[in-house]
Design a protein around this nucleic acid. Structure first.
Lengths: 255, 255
DNA sequence: CGCTTGCTTGAGGTACATCAATAAGAGTGG
DNA sequence: CCACTCTTATTGATGTACCTCAAGCAAGCG
């Protein structure tokens, strides 16, 4: 847990790149984001960033590793709701509802940049474009949540898993991560809880996908030799990720 | 389709009440919302408000009736993602992404107030509190989407349906709708597509819930004689609805 | 080097789906 | 007001995609 000055730490540039996937940001705005005071912290596997009910005062950006968001039912069943990849703002919704309604856990050893909510709010107050970019990022997440509902609600097991893999591979690629990293570091238990299946069934589906050459596997990793080959069997349509975003006039002149 | 002036039409007051469920609004802000130019339009059952891929220029507020939001898989399976009750802002996400990623359909004969996106954006630019309130409404929706993922992913059929009924009854109550209206106007096909089940199975579950006195039924309506009795078997926890909202300082002074 | 965590595979069970047929309304036109 | 159609609800019979239980194995780790 060390405080960094922007000069020595490019962490928040990842956030800039990520926001620019869906929103235009001037160089001035980008600079303001990179200059935000923040602290960088390592989180070990399985450590909680936030538990349901916690009151938060900071927002986190994932720098490296993987984080997931989940809820647990009254019967103790876990449902993973989101998988975050490097660059993702993790819990910027806490800017608006600081008491967490989900838990957040490091799925892998991860590095995070923490920004004080007050600093973020000040920045967003000063820059409508940044404010819009954050909101748009939250809304893309929202669209992904809906797609996950479709996934667990109306697709069979193989399609569900293929769809999850397609989504992650595209999101990783969009973040500019190279192919070694496109290897998806998901345990079968995580895939099960993300897709509403049992670990046993996930295992069988993976075996079958491997036999059909759709995926490769190595030491617990899943790799996609050809991500585009998987899309047909996943019924995958990337519209919901909003990569080719509708251009809205973000920089509307203040009247 | 008639243009109304606020004096003769209280439509948007429902939106004010709805936003105030999660956000503080000054009387001045409330007044500004009620004054928004808008048109009121009727929609017949099953008519589409928006289809996936449409570019929108207005946002809708549901005044009476019911609307649902859904996506269709590559195999043609429908998953309902959201059910809107009177007062709900339906598609304010289109302020930020005007090309729809979901379809919206009137589930019942409905009345809607349409507001030009530009007018809304101007109002939000002028009032940070309104802007925050809209974002918070969008984030509550997002939290509901996540709960639906939990619902279809990790709950059994009876629990799923009970959970859906609990949610709707609470949301209707929050909107101040009386008991006649708390009768839930859901077809079994809608309940099936909202919960990821088949219509046949929904029918059997309803039969069983009725036998256990958890619900009453009358002419296609479902009624909850005692909504709180249903919560235990639904594993229902209303935190995700954010009714007892964390007080955030919305009216932060501009510096 | 034992312990834990994750992966794998088989056997058996079940909570759902699908198919199919009937019934009950609800709206429509004559 | 009746005949028509269309949608929604209901129920039975059958099938299956998934789950649970259980055991064995591999690998990382302290």
């Amino acid at each position: 847990m060390s405080l960094r000055t922007p000069a020595e730490d490019p962490s928040l540039d990842k956030l800039v790149k990520r926001l620019r996937l869906h929103s235009a940001l001037s160089e001035r705005d980008a600079h303001a984001i990179r200059e935000l005071p923040h602290r960088v912290m390592e989180q070990r596997v399985n450590s909680y960033l936030v538990r349901e009910g916690d009151r938060t005062t900071e927002c986190a950006v994932l720098i490296s590793g993987f984080v997931h968001r989940f809820r647990v039912t009254a019967e103790g069943q876990r449902q993973i709701l989101s998988l975050y990849v490097p660059g993702d703002p993790i819990d910027f919704d806490h800017l608006y509802f600081p008491v967490a309604d989900d838990s957040l856990q490091a799925a892998r050893h991860s590095t995070l940049a923490y920004i004080d909510q007050e600093h973020l709010r000040e920045l967003m107050d000063d820059s409508p474009a940044i404010s819009t970019a954050v909101t748009r990022a939250l809304l893309v997440d929202s669209s992904i949540f809906r797609e996950w509902t479709v996934n667990v609600g109306r697709r069979d097991a193989q399609t569900r898993i293929a769809h999850l893999l397609c989504e992650l591979s595209l999101r990783l690629q969009a973040q500019g991560l190279d192919f070694n990293e496109v290897a998806l570091p998901l345990t079968q238990a995580e895939m099960a809880d993300a897709t509403g299946l049992s670990t046993v069934h996930v295992n069988r589906i993976l075996k079958s996908l491997k036999a059909k050459k759709y995926i490769q596997r190595e030491g617990g990793l899943v790799m996609l030799p050809d991500p585009s080959a998987l899309r047909p069997i996943a019924g995958f349509d990337d519209r919901y990720l909003h990569f080719n975003s509708d251009p809205v006039n973000h920089e509307r002149p203040k009247n």
